[in-house]
Design a protein around this nucleic acid. Structure first.
Length: 670
DNA sequence: ATACTGCATGATCGG
DNA sequence: CGATCATGCAGTATT
């Protein structure tokens, strides 16, 4: 096999520093290179998102600006795939240069894409790609950016073979500008004694004496807010998600801008738009995830942490909406902590979520909030807050019956959505065992263990167990000392990887330094001291920086695998169902007969031996194990290939192999 | 004695 | 380093 094939995986030309990290992404070309997933940071079998993503959105494209080949599935990820429908993509560095948008802090930098010409024609450009529901929301940009210039790209349905989004585009979303304003004002309202009431507040609190369900119009926001919106130049652009949207908030004047012109790409959205063959439910039986995004606060402070981004599955949506034509606006989700799920009946709400999506409250007593569960039952919780330091701590009280009704436990996730046009607040849930891939979900998948966890201790135990399991898995496969100190838990932590995608823009995450969002005990951590952990992680990081290229060379398709062959732009990719294993570094090549082979070096004599391409060797492989060539199953046998020839085989990968040589003590002599 | 309530504490995380 | 939030805990209410 030629050296070029060794290096074809991924965007090796990418100059972005992050590309120097360990590449993740479970993809191979001609079986010579396997990577971990860039998007979720997990092994393939854990990165279901990636599975879908890759099948539909990946491939190689030429950067529109510099011509470099960029992989639009993983590394360039959102950046690239969101540009697919423009007929071209840009590599990260170019895209970065071209970014003219002022990012909303609620969004990771890579969501702010260069402005393509086509965006100046929203009708043309988005006519095929407007599955933008109100849930895809946000005030992505600050006020200073002209609306026409503020259009983050989404992958078109055509490009991504998307399915139809049940979260239909709704003109109602245009009203979100008003809602945005409400959000902006909410905290102040709270602080200032609640001069105004959000729609929900009016709805649930009865302060307005109206019920949105009956009189939607009455739930429209307060006059001065509405009027002020016209002056809020940020409003028309963004406002996709409607905090308290109701049908009454339809405003013909703002219809187009928000919904059609402001699709807001998000990593999770890739799933949403992916036209996976198993649309709705992937091959694993897992429901397709719809990931809403936080409505960004215009002041940039209401951004939600990724772990609160709603990741609602089709099943959940179906469950919530039933047969109605209601539009569901996922608001946020939260994994239940032990105390949330405990008998105390208090569900701590993330502050930003509470302030963004729940009615503003000025008094600690708060107000009763009517919430409908997925079964249609209505619950009334007390939405209130406690003064906490100089801040607030928002809680929903009285959730125990509901929690019990849904048989939720710590580690499970509750989701809050809004049902439009009713304006109902809907509380869904996701058992840990069925959680989708997400920064929470992937962990919960693993913690779920087919059932659910049992409180915080169990979670912690499970978490630990998961790590241990992962460690076992990796230890059994890791053949390189370069990986021996890797934070394996991180590798198995697509969750945090995901969040890193969000932040960094490209690579999922540092393989190290992952932070779990799973609830866990703060004290008596089984992970040891933080300082120690950090120290280890830093050491690992250095090591990984050195070895990401060779790390790819170490990754091998699992034995007996049957890859799905995907041809993308003329390049043949093999995708594997099983996670890669890491074996002895070898050099893949093609022999004179055109057969794929690999060259492996004996650990004892350092001679290189020709082996079948599909074998995986132990890290201490020696000539004596060369059962494929009995004549060279001894160190005394001569080497078939010269050092020069070997060097020629080292690609682009010379550097990597040099590193390997240095790190692993390999020798190319002979 | 138990349950509830409200606040305080401190671990964790993000900027 | 400040903000967030999970949880501890003291005080109070209820059984």
């Amino acid at each position: 096999m030629s050296s070029s094939t060794v290096k074809i995986c991924f965007n090796s030309e990418c100059t972005d520093r992050k590309s120097e990290r360990l590449r993740k992404g479970w993809r191979t070309r001609s079986g010579d290179c396997v990577e971990l997933c860039d998007r979720c940071g997990s092994l393939y079998d854990e990165g279901r998102f990636c599975e879908t993503f890759h099948l539909n959105a990946s491939g190689w494209r030429g950067c529109k600006s510099c011509g470099k080949r960029v992989h639009c599935g993983c590394i360039a990820s959102i950046h690239s795939f969101t540009l697919l429908d423009t007929g071209g993509i840009e590599c990260i560095p170019c895209a970065r240069k071209n970014v003219v948008l002022t990012p909303n802090p609620a969004w990771p930098p890579h969501f702010f894409l260069p402005l393509p010409e086509r965006l100046k024609d929203p009708v043309k450009n988005w006519s095929q790609s407007q599955p933008v529901g109100p849930w895809r929301a946000s005030n992505l940009f600050n006020n200073s950016i002209p609306q026409s210039d503020l259009r983050p790209r989404m992958p078109s349905e055509a490009d991504l073979s998307t399915g139809v989004d049940r979260l239909i585009v709704s003109e109602r979303s245009s009203a979100s500008s008003m809602e945005k304003k409400k959000i902006e004002d909410s905290s102040e309202r709270s602080m200032n004694g609640g001069l105004k009431l959000g729609a929900l507040e009016m709805l649930e609190n009865g302060n307005s004496g109206t019920n949105c369900e009956e009189q939607p119009a009455s739930c429209v926001n307060i006059p001065q807010q509405s009027s002020s919106l016209n002056d809020d130049h940020s409003a028309p652009l963004l406002s996709l998600a409607v905090p308290y949207a109701s049908s009454s908030e339809t405003n013909g004047q703002t219809v187009v801008s928000g919904t059609l012109s402001q699709p807001t790409p998000s990593p999770p959205l890739a799933k949403k738009f992916s036209g996976h063959p198993h649309n709705g439910v992937d091959s694993s039986g897992e429901a397709q995830v719809r990931n809403g995004r936080p409505r960004g606060d215009a002041r940039g402070r209401n951004q939600l942490l990724p772990r609160y981004w709603p990741r609602i599955t089709d099943q959940e949506l179906q469950q919530i909406s039933g047969d109605s034509n209601s539009v569901i606006t996922p608001l946020f989700e939260k994994m239940l902590s032990a105390s949330d799920a405990g008998r105390i009946g208090r569900l701590v709400l993330p502050k930003k979520c509470a302030e963004a999506y729940f009615p503003a409250i000025s008094q600690p007593e708060g107000l009763p909030l009517k919430v409908q569960d997925a079964k249609g039952h209505e619950w009334i919780f007390q939405f209130r807050f406690w003064p906490n330091n100089n801040s607030r701590m928002y809680v929903l009280e009285g959730v125990t019956p509901c929690i019990q009704s849904m048989q939720l436990q710590a580690g499970d996730t509750v989701t809050f959505s809004r049902l439009e046009p009713e304006g109902k607040l809907v509380m869904g849930f996701r058992k840990a065992s069925t959680a989708p891939s997400s920064d929470q979900g992937n962990e919960t998948i693993k913690t779920g263990n087919g059932g659910s966890t049992h409180g915080d201790v169990s979670i912690r135990k499970t978490k630990t167990g998961e790590v241990a399991l992962t460690n076992r898995h990796l230890k059994s496969n890791l053949g390189s000392p370069s990986f021996s100190s890797m934070d394996q838990a991180d590798l198995a932590d697509p969750a945090s990887a995901w969040s890193k995608v969000d932040k960094s823009g490209y690579i999922a995450k540092e393989a190290l330094g992952a932070k779990s969002s799973i609830p866990r005990k703060r004290k008596n951590s089984t992970l040891g001291s933080k300082s120690k952990r950090l120290r280890i992680e830093n050491e690992d990081l250095i090591e990984l920086k050195l070895t990401w290229e060779e790390a790819q060379g170490l990754l091998r398709p699992p034995p007996n695998h049957v890859p799905n062959v995907v041809v993308i732009e003329g390049y043949e990719f093999e995708e594997y169902e099983e996670p890669p294993i890491i074996g002895k570094p070898t050099i893949f090549a093609t022999d004179d007969m055109g057969e794929k082979i690999q060259w492996a070096q004996c650990e004892d004599c350092f001679k290189w031996r020709k082996l079948p391409a599909d074998v995986c060797l132990s890290s201490r492989w020696t000539c004596s194990e060369n059962s494929w060539d009995p004549e060279r199953s001894s160190c005394s046998a001569t080497q078939e290939i010269t050092a020069e020839q070997l060097e020629d085989l080292l690609p682009t990968s010379k550097t990597g192999m040099t590193c390997l040589k240095q790190i692993l003590g390999f020798s190319f002599s002979q």
